[in-house]
């Protein structure tokens, strides 16, 4: 994010940033969403599912995790920032959960949902 001397001064003095800076930031955010054509609802669903998939492999800090859209040069990127607490020892196959059936064929989303349900209890793996 570009910053100017004035922005820094404003920050130090606890003043509002120049309105052009606010305009730029608001535009970048709204355009990232406009360009991706994703509704907030879909974005939230995607965010949840990404967390679930990642949580199968590593223990992540859900509070600190963040998935957002960023845009530069008309390219929109999905940026995920998922702080890892520690990795879960990989099993031979995608990690099988304490309870679940691992029939090789359950659908992706179903698997994700299952891992979500059990993730609270498996931190001591």
């Amino acid at each position: 994010m570009a910053m100017t001397l004035r922005d820094i001064l404003n920050k130090l003095l606890g003043r509002q940033p120049a309105s052009a800076t606010t305009a730029r930031e608001r535009l970048q955010l709204v355009l990232a969403h406009d360009r991706s054509d994703l509704s907030p609802e879909l974005l939230e669903q995607m965010r949840r599912e990404i967390f679930e998939v990642v949580a199968k492999y590593v223990e992540i800090d859900l509070e600190g995790g963040e998935v957002s859209l960023e845009t530069e040069d008309r390219m929109t990127a999905l940026v995920a920032n998922l702080p890892i607490k520690r990795s879960i020892k990989p099993a031979a196959n995608p990690p099988s959960k304490a309870d679940e059936s691992e029939d090789q064929e359950p659908s992706e989303t179903k698997e994700a949902e299952e891992s979500k349900e059990s993730e609270a209890g498996e931190s001591s793996d």
Binding site: R6, A18, S19, A20, R24, L27
Partner: peptide, 18 residues
């Protein structure tokens, strides 16, 4: 207004719209 940063600068607009 641009000099006072109360209006988006030309660079801002060209960067955003590429």
């Amino acid at each position: 207004m641009m000099a006072n940063q109360e209006m988006l600068a030309a660079d801002d607009v060209t960067d955003i719209l590429a």
